[in-house]
């Protein structure tokens, strides 16, 4: 018996955001990526086919913490400390759609690296890979505000996605992104009202609403996933209902939180029933990412090559056109 599927249509549409600029567009990227443009909830092509599939970004750190999990360190051991090499491997070997460069070393409690050093890292990574770049600061507001202008200038015209702007610290980054032609990553901590507020403040400074990507918080499987999931879903629903201040593509930084979970870190000796530790971390990362894809994430940021492969397979399966249609 034929089943008639319920179809839903929405008055609003998610903004389309392009990251990266080719030579013709004033940058040096061999390719650009585009996200958003949705007129329906994710993976419901019957409601409205999405023009752009979700993307996998791989995180590259300019400095890793000493207690970085062993199974995360393993496959990357020879490129840790060499961000350009690390980025190149992510693109060439692991097939990352784009690179998310986290500039951790300028943090005063880490290496207190200079803004110039951070800018040099950005230049090196840009030179090493043809893919578009996401650049994330160290999270120390004062230091970020010193680093961001140098970094956006070093990547001028490359249309990077730069973050993260937070309600307490966004003005410097907005000005820097406007001056150097970048898009901004706006973060609110699992709070739809604050996310909307931040977007209004950013657009009031002259940033067009289609040059913002949302980062609605940090969580992982078992550690607040459902809160972030429901906030992302609520943001997407508001956007589809026509709220232009919540109609931006969304990004989820998955790796950081997923690898904090004890399930991802504990050795087999501590918890034998959990199975091989080498696979638990990637599984935790991939499962977290898969959930965020369902709630509307347009970009998931991952670390481990195994979870990248798993999430890329999941995206391919979810966006495949079913036989007979």
């Amino acid at each position: 018996m034929p089943v008639e599927l319920m179809r839903e249509s929405w008055p609003g549409k998610i903004f389309t955001v392009t990251i990266g600029a080719t030579a013709a567009e004033g940058g040096t990227r061999a390719r650009t990526v585009t996200v958003g443009g949705h007129a329906a909830l994710p993976f419901l092509p019957g409601d409205a086919p999405s023009p752009h599939r979700p993307l996998v970004a791989m995180e590259v750190l300019d400095a890793v913490p000493p207690d970085w999990p062993e199974h995360l360190r393993g496959p990357l051991a020879d490129v840790i400390g060499a961000p350009a090499e690390w980025a190149r491997r992510c693109v060439d070997v692991y097939g990352a759609d784009l690179i998310c460069l986290r500039l951790q070393s300028p943090h005063p409690d880490w290496q207190d690296a200079s803004p110039d050093a951070a800018a040099a890292t950005v230049r090196a990574v840009l030179a090493a890979v043809p893919a578009p770049l996401i650049i994330v600061g160290c999270g120390h507001a004062d230091k970020d505000n010193e680093v961001w202008p140098r970094v956006t200038e070093a990547a001028k015209g490359e249309r990077c996605l730069v973050g993260v702007a937070v309600p307490e610290n966004y003005k410097t980054l907005v000005v820097a992104c406007l001056a150097d032609g970048h898009t901004i990553l706006a973060e609110a901590p699992i709070d739809v009202n604050i996310q909307k507020q931040l977007n209004i403040l950013i657009t009031e400074m002259g940033m067009p609403p289609d040059r913002i990507v949302l980062h609605p918080g940090n969580a992982s499987l078992g550690y607040g996933l459902e809160y972030e999931y429901s906030i992302m879903e609520r943001i997407r629903l508001a956007g589809l209902q026509g709220d232009k201040m919540l109609a931006q593509p969304m990004l989820a930084i998955v790796a950081d939180e997923a690898w904090k979970a004890k399930e991802a870190r504990l050795p087999e000796t501590a918890m034998p029933v959990w199975g091989a530790a080498a696979h638990r971390g990637p599984a935790w990362e991939a499962a977290t990412a898969a959930a965020f894809l369902q709630s509307g994430a347009d970009i998931v940021v991952l670390l481990h090559p195994e979870s990248v492969a798993a999430v890329k397979r999941a995206i391919a399966d979810l966006t495949a056109v079913p036989a007979g249609t």
Partner: peptide, 11 residues
């Protein structure tokens, strides 16, 4: 519409 402090400033 979703509340935020500056909702009147948004388009």
């Amino acid at each position: 519409e979703i509340y935020c402090d500056s909702y009147l400033q948004s388009q």
